[in-house]
Design a protein around this nucleic acid. Sequence first.
DNA 1: AAAATTTCAGTTGTGCACAATTTAATTGTG
DNA 2: CACAATTAAATTGTGCACAACTGAAATTTT
Lengths: 174, 174
Amino acid sequence: MDPLALDRQLCFALYSASRAMTSTYRDLLDDLGITYPQYVVMLALWEHCPSGNSSQDNRAAPNHDPGTRSTGLSVKELGSRLQLDSGTLSPLLTRLEGLGFVTRRRSTADSRSVFVDLTSRGAAARSDADCIPRDLAERTKIDTDEMSDLLDALQSLTRNLRETPTTHHTMHHR
Amino acid sequence: MDPLALDRQLCFALYSASRAMTSTYRDLLDDLGITYPQYVVMLALWEHCPSGNSSQDNRAAPNHDPGTRSTGLSVKELGSRLQLDSGTLSPLLTRLEGLGFVTRRRSTADSRSVFVDLTSRGAAARSDADCIPRDLAERTKIDTDEMSDLLDALQSLTRNLRETPTTHHTMHHR
DNA sequence: AAAATTTCAGTTGTGCACAATTTAATTGTG
DNA sequence: CACAATTAAATTGTGCACAACTGAAATTTT
């Protein structure tokens, strides 16, 4: 048994599965007109927003009260939920803004941070996404229980991998 | 239960795990001086090559016999093993060639195809990689059985996702 | 309060992924 | 044989990821 055999590497199985998944989402997100990473940002915003919140288009929302915080998420908060840095998020958000799904606005309370809010169009897109989990589950052809196990295993794996800080040299090394 | 909740999305769990894995490999591959995708290409080449094959440096290997095929893999074969196209592989192989790990040579039998061979340095790097599976297994903190289950689940998932051809519109859709 | 440090978003540069196109070579068909 | 269709690799263009850096603003320390 070759320990370096390609099809026994967890890394390669993950890498392949992740690319296959993204490819499937490319298809599922075609109608919505966004990429998979953009969709993940939308998921975070949809989850955060008090749902019935299609009141503002954010183009003419004065809001001079310095204490009032946006209903959206700051770039930092988005980054911590998705484990993405501003180097990835900034250009991605520029594109989502260009598509009219979100707006960006510097915080009045702390002008270092920038809040990302859904536009009414961005909030409305949520209903277009409702069918996606079902459509995907169909394609995976795995039942709910097995799916749930896999989800847990992946989350545990991610936690364990992130836990060990970078810069290796794990003692032994012979 | 929100069907769009971020932490119940298989796609997001996969995406997160895959990025965490790549990040871990960035650390593990630091000594070798290659990226994770480059490592995967090396895995494919190491697996394919008849192992004890440090005979040639491929710089002065005449080999005019049109029937003799390289000991390496063509770009097409690499692509089919890794599910990557030439748009990804071409520049990656250029970099691996620049690092002195592989050589590229047009086939004499069919000059459309290009064979990728390990240099002696590339073949030797294999021994530096031997410790990687063990180091990684340590970081995942999951036992061999669970790891094997996860591997199988991921391979099955990948197969199922690739199976359904692109361009969606799965009947119902209401 | 002034200076040093930290925080946040954005920018720059590198390396994937992947769609679409290009170029060259081979194969299939009349 | 000619010529259309196919195949292989490379190139071009877009969009992530991520490291490293920049600049502005807030916080901490002195």
